[in-house]
Design a protein around this nucleic acid. Structure first.
Length: 430
RNA sequence: UCCGGUAUAGCUCAGUUGGUUAGAGCAGCGGACUGUUAAUCCGCGUGUCCGUGGUUCGAGUCCACGUACCGGAGCCA
């Protein structure tokens, strides 16, 4: 018997096939049953009529509970009354396991309850759609870099040093020493870029920030390209092209999932280059003109990011931030030493920062000074300083948080639904 | 960490100025129905009212502390 998958069910119209899966929901109207059947690839309505399957099999159907596992055999037919346009007229049912008292009903539940049952919640239509979009975004990211001659070089998760200050690091015992979980792969990325020219790194990162917001996780996935012989404007070009490529791919392949999520596609279709590029100083002027009191030198908070984003309805690239609020490795602007050549990308619709990056400092003396200023241990960074001793070149890169991009593309209010098993300050389970 | 809010049935919630026996919908179980779309209709049940202490003749209701969760801030991707 041919085993079909629901996402390709139209190829099997008129044929008798088997489906392997689970009960999503079932309804009955006398001697005809409607089985919403989930196979992991999609959901399809299966018709179980007593006259077709016989008394015994109909009793089996009646005993099915939500999320029981089973296989069904039947003919695939077109029918406009069925959600999705196709349904199966069942001739045979094979139960693998009857589940009992599945906790997640088709009715409403609270966030905490659902998060406690995250391992089961993933089966629901909405969460399934998010998983598919997340996958599409990750695949787009990799395809984008792979097709532009970038080389993936994985950076370590255990690290001896801090890239961006020590207060937000998770420490673990490493044979009597402390190892920190990587909060970025960037310093290793710079080493890789000097080896392969164009590099990207993609992996989990860890931040022990005690942040309790809709935009923070303690464990999140980040893609970090690093490019040799690349200055800040070209860096922004790469970020712009990457975002456009992701949106194009998702609109091409995941419209159904975005429909399930009730995403307004117009807002995504409307995104096009060039994205507005504003210096930090120009943003401060924009904020003050807009009636938001903001002092030059402070870092943008969520309200400021939202305001700037709302002025354009496009991703906005902000560049040249005050030196004091940015990491030690960012290059000072040769035209104004109060600012560094950093750049952030703010997503529209109030989703805030999705990318942070910069042109990197190339002068070893300036780096050593900044390491001292930040009270970092220079010995930990000697290998990194070697990159400036042996063939230092202008180079740039950025980091893009996958979960924030997924939240924006799917229009989700909170990043906790963008990753299969979120880790936040208050949650380590399941 | 700070500010605000919530905690009552398996789930989502209501519960009046403090008053005697704490409710509804859904889920579950049984029944009716051959085109349902979170189906509908009939019948059946469930409680450490988050914990501890206090005020009171009397506390689910008021007060204090604790805990958990939700929303926001700071910080960041």
């Amino acid at each position: 018997m041919t085993v079909a998958r629901i996402n390709r069910i139209s190829e099997f119209e008129g044929k008798t096939v088997q489906l392997n899966g689970w009960v999503y929901n079932s309804r009955r109207s006398g001697k005809i049953g409607f089985l919403m059947f989930r196979d992991g690839f999609g959901i399809m309505q299966c018709i179980v009529a007593k006259n077709d399957v016989g008394e015994e099999a109909f009793e089996v159907f009646k005993s099915l509970t939500q999320e029981s596992s089973l296989s069904v055999v039947g003919e695939v037919v077109k029918n406009d009354r069925a959600p999705g346009g196709f349904e199966m007229v069942v001739s045979e049912l094979m139960v693998h396991q009857l589940s009992s008292e599945y906790p997640i009903t088709p009715k409403e539940h609270g966030t905490d309850f659902l998060m406690n049952h995250r391992h089961l919640w993933l089966r629901s239509k909405r969460q399934h759609a998010i998983l598919k979009v997340r996958h599409e975004i990750i695949k787009a990211v990799r395809d984008f870099f792979d097709s532009n001659d970038f080389t993936l070089c994985d950076s370590p998760i255990f690290t001896p040093n801090a890239a961006e200050g020590t207060s937000t690091l998770f420490g673990t015992d490493y044979f009597g020493n402390t190892a920190f979980l990587a909060q970025t792969g960037q310093l290793y990325g710079e080493a890789a870029a000097m080896a392969v020219g164009r590099h990207y790194n993609f992996g989990p990162t860890f931040r022990a920030e005690k942040s309790k917001t809709r935009r923070h996780l303690t464990e999140f996935w980040m893609v970090e390209p690093e490019i040799a012989y690349c200055e800040i404007d070209e860096n922004m070009n790469w970020a712009e092209r990457l975002i456009l490529f992701i949106i194009e791919r998702v609109l091409e392949n995941r419209k159904n999932e975005l429909d399930v999520l009730e995403r307004d596609l117009g807002k995504l279709e409307h995104i096009k280059a060039p994205f507005p590029r504003l210096s930090y100083t120009e943003c401060v002027e924009l904020l003050n003109k807009g009636g938001i009191n903001f002092t030059w030198g402070d870092d943008f908070g969520a309200p400021e990011e939202t305001f700037i984003g709302e002025q354009f309805n496009q991703p906005v690239m902000v560049h040249r931030f005050p030196t004091a609020i940015k990491a030690f490795y960012m290059k000072r602007d040769p035209e104004n030493e109060k600012v560094v050549l950093g750049m952030d990308v703010l997503a529209p619709e109030g989703f805030g920062e999705i990318i942070g990056g910069s042109e990197r400092e190339t002068e070893i003396n300036l780096l050593e000074d900044r390491i001292k200023d930040e009270e970092l241990n220079q010995a930990d960074y000697e290998w990194f300083l070697d990159l400036r001793r042996y063939g230092s070149v202008p180079h740039s890169g950025f980091g893009m948080g996958i979960e924030r991009v997924v939240a924006w593309i799917c229009n989700l209010p909170h990043v906790r639904e963008t990753i299969p098993f979120p880790r936040t300050i208050g949650r380590l389970n399941p």
